[in-house]
Simulated scan of single mutants.
Amino acid sequence: MTPDPASTATGGTGSGRTRAEVGQVVTHRRYVPYSHAHYAGNLVDGAYSLAAFGDVATEMCIRTDGDEGLFASYSSVQFLAPVRAGDVIEVSATLVRVGTRSREMDFEVRVVGRGAPERGASAAEVLDPPVVATTARGVVVVPPAG
């Protein structure tokens, strides 16, 4: 059977190799829509950050192994500051350990922009420095190479 060319070209599991290296980072930025506000003050639930971690972990696995992978566990989750509707967040995954099939990552949500309603209905500002809102460590698994 011939390996899938797309998988081979990216070093995915079809080629029997991985490109996973400690220190690799994947980062996403997104606007938090008001439709995700669940609580007073337009607060967004913590599950929003966890879903974002799943998204960056998926991209990491695609880049390193040519497969979306599956989230196996979190060993730590810390909610450090609120995420609000109207925020612009930056979500990152950093590869900290590479096993045969497991990939351990550190995750972080940073609020890089926030609405400033006291200045006007659509006013907003860039936060410098960004506010670290959520951190976690998690493990994903990928299919065996071969």
Rank of each mutant, 00 (worst) to 15 (best):
V22W: 11
A52P: 00
D128H: 12
G23L: 01
V32Q: 01
Q24A: 12
D128Q: 07
D55R: 08
D4Y: 10
A116D: 15
V141Q: 00
R119S: 12
N42Y: 15
F71L: 12
A81N: 14
T100C: 13
A116I: 05
V140G: 02
A6P: 10
G120K: 02
T27C: 07
D65R: 09
V140M: 02
T135I: 00
P144Y: 07
G12P: 09
T10W: 08
V96N: 12
T2K: 11
Y34R: 09
E104A: 02
S7C: 09
T94P: 10
R19N: 10
A9M: 15
L95Q: 05
G86D: 09
A47H: 13
F107R: 04
D45H: 15
T100A: 00
G113C: 14
R110C: 06
T2H: 13
M105A: 03
A72D: 09
T134A: 01
L50F: 03
V32D: 05
V132M: 07
V109M: 08
G11I: 07
L127Q: 02
Y74H: 05
S73R: 08
G138Y: 00
P33W: 07
E118S: 10
Y34W: 15
L127S: 07
E21A: 12
T64C: 11
P5I: 14
E125T: 10
F71Y: 03
A40F: 11
E90T: 06
G66F: 01
A123R: 15
R119T: 08
R30L: 11
L95P: 05
Q24Y: 04
Q78C: 13
A51P: 07
F71G: 14
A81V: 07
I89N: 00
A136M: 07
H38I: 13
R29Q: 15
G46Y: 01
T58M: 09
M1R: 13
V25K: 13
V26L: 13
V56E: 04
E68R: 15
M60C: 01
T100W: 02
A9C: 09
